[in-house]
Design a protein around this nucleic acid. Sequence first.
RNA 1: GCCCACGUAGCUCAGUGGCAGAGCACUUCUUUGGUAAAGAAGAGGUCAUGGGUCCGAUUCCCAUCGUGGGCUCCA
Length: 630
Amino acid sequence: MTSASRPPILEYPVVWELLMAELDDEITSSDFLSRMRHTTAHVLAQAVKEMFPDARLGIGPVIEDGFYYDFDLPRPLTPDDLPALEARMARIVGENLPLTRFVEPREQARARCEAAGQPFKVQLIDDLPEDQEISFYQQGDFIDLCRGPHIEATGRIGAFKLMNIAGAYWRGSEKNPQMTRIYGTAWQKRSHLDAYLDRLEEARKRDHRVIGRQLKLFVIDDAVGPGLVLWTPAGAVVRQELQNFISHELRKQGYQQVFTPNIGRLELYKTSGHFPYYRDSQYPPIVDQEYLQKLAGENCSCGELSNRLEQGAVEGYLLKPMNCPHHIKIFDSQPHSYRDLPVRLAEFGTVYRWEQSGELNGMTRVRGFTQDDAHLFCTEEQVAQEIVGCLSLVKIIFGTLGMRDYRVRVGLRDPASDKYTGDPANWDKAEQACREAARSLGVPFTEEIGEAAFYGPKIDFVVKDVIGREWQLGTVQVDYNLPERFDLSYIGPDSKPHRPVMIHRAPFGSMERFCGVLIEHFAGAFPTWLAPEQVRLLPIADRHTPWCEDLKRRMVEAGFRATVDARSEKTGKKVAEGQVARVPYMLVVGDRDIEAGNVSVRHRERGDLGPRPVEQFLADLAAEVEGKAA
RNA sequence: GCCCACGUAGCUCAGUGGCAGAGCACUUCUUUGGUAAAGAAGAGGUCAUGGGUCCGAUUCCCAUCGUGGGCUCCA
């Protein structure tokens, strides 16, 4: 195989932005392009109206890389309909229809949409602010309520493609009717479209679900349950290394490790407020045997049991949806002086949440996951400094793994809402602390009003996966609520009890989601310190195998992960398979090497590095692993 | 949960209202070799599950489970 035709599995650009960065900026983000995409959406709507004269139109905005349009149609659309729509669109583009804009007074505009049988458009008009100008765009005989802007004529549309069909609720609310959404992409030139489609294809190859199967990192089995991840030996190595890494950092930062069980009494979660309030996103309670017998004695029917579960009027246990109540009980198990604070309790705590079935996604959205959780109990004055400490931890982790492509979101309260708990003065201080801590990170961040939890402001770390979807990883949240609900206190210098503040934080977020994102980040080619298999020894012929086995044993004893490929296959094949398995180092061993006490080193990316003394290779390897080189 | 699509060997995927297919992986044999894939043979299947239509269903219909994309929600 020539080098040109090798699979591009070992290119290193990470996640979506970098993949896309290879497309010219001019191609991806000009103003013309977004106007053109908007016009393409209108052309789609025109085509749909031709095909279904009764179609009712929703909205058709420009999105990243393209556009969509929502329709209420007389029958469901199937993928087979897309080519027909594309053909109509191509014809409309070929007709080069000019787009003209006109403005109408509200009542007239409203009447026009009503007459056209477009109730959704009427709703849009009704919701526009009083002083808003109401504009329409027309191409041919197709007229659409629209703010614009557009390009001047349909003929200037370049290359486009309808991508997929999806259901979407009108205005995003489950209570509203569901419409048919058609997604499309549009570019100035055919070559741009092709490049984009190629990129999509590449991205799919590094999807963590694909690589996870190839490299045997994890498996999700029906018989165990949807959204429940089984970490296979290779994946478990990656997770274990990450956990070791962070545990080491935690010790340095004064955290204490704890362990807590996977269930807790329902009462505990009633106190915390999680039950029955968040009942819909939890596995149903486990009713204990004695209580069940008591109910049977009362001739309690299934329906009645279900009602009582609804109301939270049962006794039993809950699979824990979060670790905080358990950690709170540890904190509360003894009195604390202000001198003890902050108390930092850490645990890789496994939690279970009932995600809707349609939401499950590989490792990134699951029903059981392990948070690298910790809860800090501190004084009001210590909050700012503790937030900074938490962020520095996140920064160390992201930095070590070479993840630079993330977004920081500071969630603040919405002053207009009264759903927030705690003293507004404390909120002000905590929000200011979050803001300043985020600023001190030196990475771009956005402040989002109304994104705070009801119990306190938070800082989230958000990354995009390989197909452009955003996932929240690390999080730091200030909490005024739980200390109140659990009546926590410490003794201050005035020898009176005071209320501590809690900080929840998880720098990885969940091990499952983080590893999923990490798999895509590295396209499965983990740095040596994380690689499930670090070194693979390749004996040239059977007579070299015992020597390789000895060396392997030495390496395993030294703490490395090494294997021998002793199959009677040609070296070329062993190398090929080692490359596909993304093993960082392959050591080819034949007569020449054994005689000289060498190994012939091949590196995953750097290729054949030639022979080198065993001792030197081992020393270099140790240094690389120790330094966590990315 | 809702909309659409999909479910065939461990993996990637062909295929058909009338005997179940390929490549890779696996096992055995030959081969003992120097950096991206040696040859041969063999084994491997309740065509997701349950029901229906039919002389006959992997194929058509219905339901269930699961997966994918999207919507919604996310302590």
